[in-house]
Structure formats: C-alpha cells, structure tokens
Design a protein around this nucleic acid. Structure first.
Lengths: 373, 373
DNA sequence: CTCCTTTTGTTCGACGTCCGAACTAATAGG
DNA sequence: CCTATTAGTTCGGACGTCGAACAAAAGGAG
C-alpha cells in the first residue's frame, strides 16, 4: 500500500477555536441570529458561543443589533456580520482595462471602479500600478479595513499566484502577479483565473447551486467547475478548458492542434461568422443560424461534462447569457436528450451580469474570512 | 450573499485527538518509524506522540518491532501498523458470481474467495446470503477482527448504500444493500460502485497517482475519477459516466437515447463487431481494426475529460488493459494531439489486474481506519 | 572501566478550549 | 406583584497539546 504523501498539520486547541469561529460566522451569515439560536444551530454550548462571540465582536467581525421585539422570555440580541468590518478587494486585469471592487463582510459590493489600460502596449508593471491606483480609490470610497486582495486574470494561474499564460495578453507570460501586487498594496494578495471567479460570483451572488458548470462564452470558451460549493481547480490549475472538447471530429482545425473543438464552432468568432454579423451587438440582435449552431455544439460538449461529473445544473454566461433564453432553451433540450440523469439537468442563464469576475474575487476574500478566520 | 447550507459539526478535544491519531498512523503507514521520527515528521511533540501511540498500541492498531540497531544514542523502537489488527472486508457482487476478500491494516490481502452465483435467476436476498457465507470463510481464514465491510456493486449506488440501478442485474433495483447485508454480518457495511473501487485499487495498490481518470472497459464504459487522492462521486453518486460522451454525433443510436456515444464505438460489443471476433479472448488475440477504432474514440472522449479536469494521467483498465500496450500507445498519441497541457498527459495500463474492485473495497475500509480512526 | 555525549522516550505542570450546570437578566402574562 | 420562560454569563471539571525537565540506553574517548 502506497503512503499518502500529504503534508497534514497537527491540530490543537487553536485549530478547534478557528473551526468553531467559522461555524458561528457561517451560522450568522444567512440571517441575523441570537447567541442561543447560533448555539442551537451549530451544536455548540451557549457558553461556548458567548465566548466565541466576544472574540468576534472584539475583532470587528460581528455587531450586535438592537431589535428586542418578540414573545415571552428575555429578548434575544441578534448578531450579524459587521458591514463595517474587514472587507475584500477584487481586482480584474482585462484585455484593455483594469477594475477594482470592494465587498464588505456581508458580501454586498460597496464600491466599483473601472478604467481603461492598454496591456498590449504597456508592460505588466505599468498595468499593476494602474490597478493599485484604483484599488486605493475604491478602498478610500468604502472606508473599510482591507482583509485581502484577489486578482482575476484571463489565463492560467498557479496556486501561488503566477500568471503562466494568457492568450490575449502576450506580454503577461510567467508574471508573479500576487507577489508583485503585494508590494504595491499593503495586504495579502492572491490571484485566480477570471472564469473561475465569475463562476463563484454566480454561486454566491446569483443562484446558489452547490454543484454546477458555469460556461463562459467569449473568444475562447472557458468553464468554472463548482463541486460541493467549492471551485475545482485541477491538479495544475488548468481545469475548465471546455473550449477544446471535440464536438465535430472532422471539422475545422483549431489553434490547439486538434480539429472540431467547441471553440471553433461556438466561440465568438465562429458565431459571428455563422450569423454574418460584424460585432457582438449585431450578433445579439440578429443571431439567426448562430443560435442553432451554438446550441448543438454546446449540447454535445456539455453532455460529456455533465455525464462525467454528474452535475445537476449548467449556467450559461458571457456571450451565451446575452443571447437570451432562446439559446438556454435549445441547449437544455439538446442536453436532456443526451443525459440520462434523473432529475434532468437544469440549464440556466447567468444571473450576475456585470463585473462577475470582479465581484467573485472580492466576495471570495470575505468568504474565506467567514469560513475559517 | 447566499449562505452555505452546510451541516458542519462543532469541534472539541476529541476532534483534535482523532485528527492527530490519523496523523500518527499515516506517518507510520509508509515505512516503520520511531516515536521521535513520527514527531519530527508530523510536527507534534514527542510527548504527545507517546500519548497517542500508547492509545494506538492498546487499540491494536500499532505494534512495536524490535530492531535496535543504529548509530549513537538510545536506539529507536520502530512502530508499524499491526498486521494482526482490525481488517477490512471487501465484497463484490458480479453478474454471475460473488467474491470476498480480507485486507489487513497494512493493505496486504490476506484471503480471497470467489464462488459462482446466478443473480439473474435468484433474488438479491439469496445473493447476499451467498456473499455472507464466503465472508465468514475468508474472515475465518484470515483470523482478524473485522473493522468494516464494503460491497462493490455494478451500478449506481447512493451514499447510504442503496443500489439504485444496475444495467446487468435487472432484479437488483433499489436494493438497500448496505442495510440488508449489515443484518447478515455483524459489522458496519457500506457500498460503492464497482468501477470506482477498481480505480481506488489502482491508486493504492498499483501506481500511486493522486489525480487520474481510470477507464474501465466492459460492455459499458465507466470511469473512476480520482482527484487529489480521493474518489470523486459527484452530486448524485453517478459521476464517471464516460460511456455516453459523444464521439461521433452522426453515429449509431445508443440505448441512452443519444447517438454516437463512446459506448457504441468502443464498448465490448462494438469492439467484437469491429474485430469480427466471437468472444473477448478472440478479440484480445486478434484485435485487428478494433484497435484503431477504440483508440480514436477513446482519444476524443478522454481529451474532453482531461482538458476539463486538467488530469495528468489516464489509466486504462478492463478490456482495454487486456488489449495491451499497442492500445495504450495509440490512445496516448491521440490524446496528446488534442490536449494542450504541459507536461503531456500520461497514459498507462492498469497494474492491478485481478480482483481490482474487491481489493479496492477491502483496502478502502482500512484506509479510512488509518486516515481518521 | 568510567565518564561523557547523543538520541529516545516519559513525566509533569501550564495553558487553551469545550462542556455542563448553576446563576443572573429581562420580558410577558396572570 | 409574582411566576414562567427565554437569553446570556460564570465557574469548575475534563481533555488535549506544548514545553521543559528527567530517565533510559546506547556508542565513543580517555
């Protein structure tokens, strides 16, 4: 029997405390609850909850509201996540702009800003300085202490925050974004793939599906895989490459070296060609044949993924969301014809339209804070 | 922000103890180690390790070997998993036989037995009684205390051990195998899909790949997905349905309702037809055109899965393993042509040939024991 | 042979955490 | 005004880890 080479850490009283702090915070995250309610919900003693809450109040993670109306007995003191507590900052490096956004502990966005920045002409250091500038702006606007910063990047990102490869950002090869940006803003910085964060935004801010495939249609076709309420990154951080699933083995050659990849049939450039449209706005107005083409291809590609992972739902985002319910309907039909699961797969349109990755990044920081502070 | 409806349990001193017990056991699982070595490896204090080891010795999980040879200083007392400690029992319900097997704490198989049993003619209760009989036999032969029993089933199994649907066992619909079998043998019983357990056997007993797709070729084509050293079941326990990935959209109709599924091209019956063979033995001797057909179809289907999940390795089992290295070579080539990952995907032949599911079931029980007893 | 060094394993007090139960606080209803 | 009810706090006990001191068992130097 081969050993697990896992690097597990020893547990002690501090581990327990952290775990239970997280329990209390997640119990309060949904709706305000009293200490007694938290105790009943988590299984902890009222005494223990009191002690934990004292800590959390001192740390500014919780606040006590005054709403002493109710039935018999001593009125309860509802606790809630402190809207003025530590916040998460999301940053997005787009192809020709940068954005930043602040989310408070409750997950509501308190400030957003986006400015143009041509990353094809300038080098990464320049782009990151621009980003740091608007981070300062939004943080000043929100006026909250910063717990952490997360950067959304359009490419392959390693767990330690290095952008390895970005198809549309040729100058950003092997850039240690987390480290570089950490020296520009005084806060812990992490970095993640942009499509993955958009999927998380959909999970947290949109429809709460613990297991889903979030398909982001653009020039490429990416997917964020959410399993059991958590994002799945894959062994090398590259999971979600849906664009190169083969949907037409004899079809057009793809940049990846294969033929008939989903991207060559249902990517934005292919859809523009199918619709005879000049730009995305025109495509959305008069999709024509593009709708059928995209639906068929997506049906084939998604069926494989859904069968393989036994996913109960698929969410269409990016261009696909803009193409409207007609596409959702057709993809759903194509999918149900090929998938055997009962109950049948649900196909939905993305609910978080604007700044999905940005919101996902900012909320992700506070979610981590609430989960295990 | 939507709350996580997770049912997390409170932590206490007992939780810590359990966790650290697991740490000690996994530390000695690879090679025997002294208390001091365990302390250094896990980060626990020597004192704490001593206390934990005392417990584990008393429980019969560990034994102290005598090998006091070495350099300076007081000689170390090597500890190892107790080969006479609690064991795991694996049971397999095949189409026309039942099997049972005992694995000790170190993961070595101590007894195996397999007898014919026609599950198409007799009902589940009869089959389970046969299984219980040979469980008694192998347990008597091994002479070890039984920690748990795991049943491998050829179909969809829910987390609580109910066999929902088994294509080749029409009488076994919605059978609560775990519960029924639990009343026949006095030990905790769980049940899992047979292909999944074969994948785990490959993980533990064969090549130790923390992330892989194990493809099991039979009448259907199933897959066990191993992510980060653990099996991925999916939201509904049905993950791994590789057989109905579409590899030829215009192809033959499949029982699932779709067309051109992998199963219709690279399943056993399709391969027999392609090779013009009467049975599997003949197919293995003279595969002919079947080799190319299978390799192409697997290449297309696996490329999608590998891209989607960013898997570093694929292991071919079942009939595919019997078809030899020629198939492995061709699938590898087809796959590398379509997958962009670096380093390239590895394609391997299954190392655990006989009784894979049986071994996976038995070893799975003891692995769980060692992980968090 | 004796003493010193080195490494292993044990013992003991201090600290942190949770639990259970008793106690105080605050409200509604009779 | 008194009682029942619910909320929150306080305190001792139990459990577990840590750190340091201590005992044990070898090899090597003089």
């Amino acid at each position: 029997m081969t050993p697990l080479p896992s690097e597990a850490h020893p547990a002690g009283p501090a581990t327990v405390r952290r775990h239970n702090r997280g329990l209390v915070l997640t119990a309060v995250a949904g709706a305000p609850a009293s200490r007694a309610a938290v105790a009943a919900h988590t299984g902890l003693t009222r005494g223990t909850v009191s002690s934990l809450v004292d800590d959390l109040l001192a740390d500014g993670m919780l606040v006590e509201r005054e709403a002493p109306r109710g039935g018999r007995g001593r009125p309860a003191n509802p606790l809630q996540l402190n809207p003025s507590g530590p916040c998460g900052v999301g940053v997005e490096i787009g192809v020709d702009d940068v954005g930043a956004c602040v989310a408070d502990l409750t997950g509501t966005v308190r400030a957003v800003r986006r400015v143009p920045s041509d990353h094809r002409r300038h080098d990464p250091a320049h782009g990151l300085r621009r980003a740091a500038d608007i981070v300062r702006d939004v943080v000043a606007e929100a006026g909250l202490p910063v717990a952490g910063v997360r950067v959304a990047l359009p490419g392959v990102v390693t767990p330690d925050g290095v952008l390895q490869r970005a198809p549309n950002l040729p100058r950003w090869q092997d850039v240690g974004v987390a480290e570089l940006f950490g020296s520009l803003v005084e806060a812990p910085v992490s970095a993640t793939n942009e499509a993955d964060l958009a999927a998380l935004a959909e999970l947290w801010d949109g429809q709460a599906l613990r297991d889903m495939l979030f398909v982001s249609g653009g020039v490429g076709v990416g997917a964020g895989i959410v399993l059991d309420g958590r994002l799945f990154h894959g062994a090398g951080g590259r999971a979600g490459e849906l664009g190169h699933v083969v949907v037409d083995p004899g079809g057009r050659a793809c940049t990846c070296g294969g033929t008939g990849c989903l991207e060559t049939v249902a990517g934005v450039t292919a859809l523009l060609r199918a619709a005879g449209a000049a730009d995305v706005d025109e495509l959305v107005r008069e999709p024509g044949a593009a709708l059928d083409v995209a639906a068929d291809a997506l049906g084939v590609a998604l069926a494989g993924a859904v069968n393989l992972l036994d996913l109960p739902a698929v969410v269409l985002g990016g261009v696909y969301a803009r193409l409207g319910d007609a596409l959702v309907e057709r993809v759903g039909a194509a999918l149900r014809a090929r998938v055997l699961a009962r109950p049948p797969v649900r196909v939905l349109r993305a609910a978080v339209a604007r700044d999905a990755a940005l919101r996902g990044a900012a909320i992700g920081v506070v979610r981590e804070l609430v989960g295990a502070p």
